[in-house]
């Protein structure tokens, strides 16, 4: 395997909450997580809501809520991702495509949002190139988010997140609520970026999407990374999957057993 772009070891995330008055309690988000993503690889992180997969993204990006405590190491391209280094790299080498199209600014034309962070001298030229790449008509640049369809907004999100300098892309749930063709389009964009050498961390609960685009699938449950499975083991009745929770997830799909867990 080629050099890891991202390597995480022993990551812990917990939250301090005020229970009553000044008494606090600690809620665990992620415990002891180890993970590597290589250059040009798409690694899918699969898990239930509440399993900690979005926290993982937030921990890498340094955007956890202020009451979060973290432990462990996050290494990006050979050196530790300190807050100062992260500050320099976010939006340049590390990029994020958020879950919801509501992350776009509703009051700013989408073209201007794509130009954010680009060198002003070439921003408009780059914006045109990104629009062409994601099949967005040029006249859309002057429109506001509410004037665009859901599928177009997804493409705008890609255009805001993708820069030539990006080495790691974190995509959080880019597919739910989209019909089959739109999902295929999103996954196609991820494949294209990986082919250019970008390490892609795809966070999703959509097993079909994960399996069709990634070679390795990391499965999270209740804050633990329970197993990393080969994508092609998600087939048949899941008998080639190593971990019982991965088998339960696979079998719960409506096209499989539609079982509410506990098939082991």
């Amino acid at each position: 395997m080629s050099e890891p772009i991202l390597s995480i070891s022993g990551l812990d995330v917990s939250f301090v909450q005020y229970a009553r008055g000044l008494r606090t309690r600690t809620v665990t988000g992620i415990t002891g997580l180890d993970l590597e993503v290589a250059e040009g690889e798409i690694l899918a992180v699969l898990g239930a809501s509440g399993s900690g997969k979005t926290l993982l993204a937030q921990a890498i990006l340094g955007i956890l809520p202020h009451n979060a405590r973290t432990g462990g190491d996050i290494v990006f391209r050979g050196s530790r991702l300190s807050p100062a280094r992260r500050e320099r790299l976010l939006g340049r080498e590390i990029s994020y495509i958020p879950q919801s199209v509501t992350s776009l600014d509703p009051l700013m034309p989408v073209g201007a949002q794509v130009r954010i962070g680009l060198d002003p001298a070439v921003a408009e030229h780059e914006r045109r190139r990104l629009f062409a790449r994601y099949d967005l008509p040029d006249q859309v640049a002057g429109l506001h988010p509410h004037q665009l369809s859901g599928g177009m907004l997804r493409r705008v999100l890609f255009a805001t997140g993708v820069r030539d300098t990006v080495r790691l892309l974190i995509a959080d749930e880019p597919t739910p609520g989209l019909h089959a063709e739109a999902v295929a389009e999103v996954l196609g964009h991820l494949r294209e970026l990986a082919a250019e050498g970008v390490a892609v961390l795809l966070i999703t609960h959509d097993i079909n999407a994960a399996v069709s685009v990634a070679r390795r699938v990391a499965v999270m449950n209740q804050g633990h990374l329970v197993t990393v499975e080969a994508a092609d083991a998600f087939t048949g009745d899941g008998e080639r999957l190593r971990h019982p929770f991965a088998r339960d997830l696979w079998r719960a799909l409506p096209q499989n057993r539609f079982s509410p867990g506990g098939t082991e």
Binding site: G177, L249, A252
Partner: peptide, 17 residues
Amino acid sequence: DEMTAMFDAITQATIWH
């Protein structure tokens, strides 16, 4: 209306059953 589109497979199957 897309009642379980946002959920993982086990949660989806559990809610529907």
